[in-house]
Design a protein around this nucleic acid. Structure first.
Lengths: 231, 231
DNA sequence: CTCAGTTTGTTCTCCCGTTCACAAACTCCT
DNA sequence: AGGAGTTTGTGAACGGGAGAACAAACTGAG
């Protein structure tokens, strides 16, 4: 059934590759800004901080966009990756929870420049409903459904405290949101078919702490001539 | 050389496991707050949002802290994981770049409650040097070295614009920081032995966008009776 | 004490991702 | 035109993590 047409290259791209495509995209934009028109896989890989073989294999899932003996055309590859990710079009986004983090997210220029448009900022606290953040005014949370339907929002961002997050997620899903970026330190449960990505600031720090501790322990072991059991 | 002593269980824990330990820790804290004293791997796994077999395997790298036929003692396991990660001690942290995101990070309660103490907020902009954020006053960036040495800071957080990030990282490393949490949308290059973890908000959104686009394409293919090539 | 029931810790298998290495393909110089 | 030099795209080997499945170890009832 449904044979793939030539420009329908929906051969499934591995998750690990998908996660790196935005990195390549950013590196290409930087190169383009520097006036560089062509680059080899080695140069691009170095700019993106990955192995060049990995880069080439990743790109090969999208198609053959390079020229052997030459390299990649920066503008062309940039467009192809952007198209594959889907950031050539405009994505309406709602942000729920306008605390410190919500403020930061609303003001983050990286969203707008990558095709994401914040169509609404929602908060349960009535005291905030007069504020205007980043040119968008804060609306009551109860308007979620209407806004999602009106703008065809598929992506929601949760920046509320942990306790409110599951409820917010439930209502987002009911309204029609299919992808959630969750900054609240909670495990969300959502129905099949809904994507959740989690960003947890304190978890990242804890992972770093583990490695610092390990490095410290390792250097103690190196100088273990004088160690004694102080358990 | 250097035989492992009994409580020196530094058999290397897989990275994937290390990344999940903070999740388990949070789940255990939640369970403890609910007054639950004992839990099975099934219950804890569900609270952490992972497979129970994976949870048991992860915990087995730390040691045998459960009781067969019974489960895990919540308080005991919580302490063991916290000790393994290293969050039973206090980690001094510096944050550089007090924009929107820096503000949010400085105020984030999840840091303090997990053993991370913000000892300094640094910014290059002299206009900000009078501010007090989250009880810590903003200092000029030039004081980085002195503060790192004075407090023995091993972990630095970069929340500056992309252009400043590499310079900040260089100076952090020179001052003695060995682990960096980078929020700037840039690939940092650091010497061996220095850990960098990157959190990129717009990349996370782009990954979501890719999946939304795929889901949309898939449902189009399902209803492809009427499709025509509109390339 | 014994036996049925429960739950952990671990082994084994499978799959995904990374990396190496090389053939194919292109450019440029002579 | 031909050959040397580059660089891509990919086949194949390798390593690590995920999940199933089971043996070991504990509880509690009779």
């Amino acid at each position: 059934m449904t044979a793939r047409t030539s420009n329908d290259q929906a051969r499934d791209i591995p998750e690990a590759t998908v996660a790196r495509l935005p990195v390549y995209l950013r590196a290409l934009i930087t190169l383009a800004e520097q006036g560089i028109e062509t680059c080899s896989s080695e140069e691009l890989a170095s700019a993106a901080g990955v192995n060049s073989a990995k880069l080439r294999k990743d790109l090969s899932y999208l198609g053959s966009y390079g020229t052997r003996g030459v390299g990649y055309d920066v503008e062309y590859l940039r467009y192809q990756i952007a198209r594959e990710i889907g950031v050539t079009q405009d994505w309406p986004v709602v942000i729920v929870g306008i605390g410190n983090l919500g403020h930061a997210l609303a003001n983050y220029s990286g969203f707008r420049s990558r095709g994401f448009r914040v169509v609404a900022l929602l908060d349960a606290d009535p005291d905030r409903h007069d504020e205007v953040v980043a040119g968008v005014d804060v609306r009551p949370f109860s308007e979620l459904e209407a806004i999602v339907v009106e703008h065809g929002v598929a992506i929601g961002v949760i920046a509320t405290p942990a306790l409110a997050a599951q409820d917010v997620a439930d209502r987002m899903v009911r309204a029609g949101v299919t992808s959630i970026l969750n900054f609240a330190p909670t495990v969300l449960s959502v129905p099949d078919g809904v994507d959740v990505r989690k960003v947890d600031l304190s978890i990242e720090l804890q992972i770093l702490a583990y490695h610092v501790q390990r490095k410290a322990a390792a250097s103690l072991v190196e100088a273990d001539a004088v160690t004694e059991d102080s358990a």
